[in-house]
Design a binder for these strands. Structure first.
Lengths: 145, 145
DNA sequence: ATGACATTGATAATCAATATCATTATGTAG
DNA sequence: CTACATAATGATATTGATTATCAATGTCAT
């Protein structure tokens, strides 16, 4: 039972949605797939301009929407006001550990925390659908300076 | 060792900053203090208009900035894109349990979770400074419908 | 009452994200 | 290959939230 590759997932989505090909979208997709980092719209735009000069922000936003719809990508509204995009497909649920100095993002999970969250919600009569946990601090390297 | 009242905290701040009085700011302050709920800018604006007709959004924003500076208030950027303002003074750290249907906000704390967060961060070499935990789901009432 | 200066509201400006729209590109059917 | 339907693009306008600007007004110590 092998998992489909991200490229395939998007190809399926494109077929379902009757999307046509375009160098711009392919460029953006390629950049997104090559980067496991959490990219901002601007970073994506800067990188895409190299492969497809003249590309506009609208196309970046449009393509990101497609990526999210297809299940490959997830929008992350960060505390600093910047919106970042992370890989979703094949990534199980996780939270984020974020360095407030260098901006490093680390994906973390703790089943203990997850369990306690459930218990906490139940105690208040809530039925949980999702949660968002972001831990901010200084990473090992940034503590030295 | 009694704790100062919120009114006093703001008065001290105003003195420090050489703020002058104004009916508008006093109206906003009064509304904020009377409401323990998590208010949006618009709710505050609507309420303030009754006490000070002709008041502008700029004044709401300016006053909220003062309230935050003074330590009475905290800005909360929620997942739904709406910015809310909550009471900070005298409120120890807490997280939020949010109903995605009716918008109810419940303040919660769980020391177990806090401990595990610390441990998790330590394991990754991070020194935590703050965190943000939001639990989304349906509250008891909204589950019935 | 006066002068220094904080405050206000209207308005313009900014910033991220969306919508509009004429032009261009893609792909399928002949 | 051509034609046609339609998706995609980029420029530009628009929106919504927030901030900056500025002339007019309010506050307050003297």
């Amino acid at each position: 039972m092998e998992r489909k590759k991200e490229e395939e997932v998007f190809a399926d989505y494109a077929r379902r949605k009757n999307l046509k090909h375009s160098v711009q979208r392919e460029a953006i997709l390629k950049i997104f797939l090559k980067n496991e980092r959490h990219l901002t719209v601007d970073e994506l735009y800067q990188a895409a301009k190299k492969a497809a000069p003249g590309i506009g922000f609208a196309t970046i936003y449009r393509t990101l929407k497609h990526l999210c719809d297809s299940g490959l990508c997830r929008e992350l509204k960060c505390e600093d006001g910047v919106t970042r995009y992370e890989h979703l497909y094949g990534h199980s649920h996780h939270d984020h550990l974020i360095c407030t100095k260098c901006g490093k993002f680390v994906e973390v999970v703790d089943f203990g925390i997850e369990k306690l969250q459930e218990a906490l919600a139940r105690k208040e009569g809530f039925m949980l659908t999702k949660h968002k946990l972001e831990l901010y601090g200084l990473c090992k390297d940034c503590q030295k300076e």
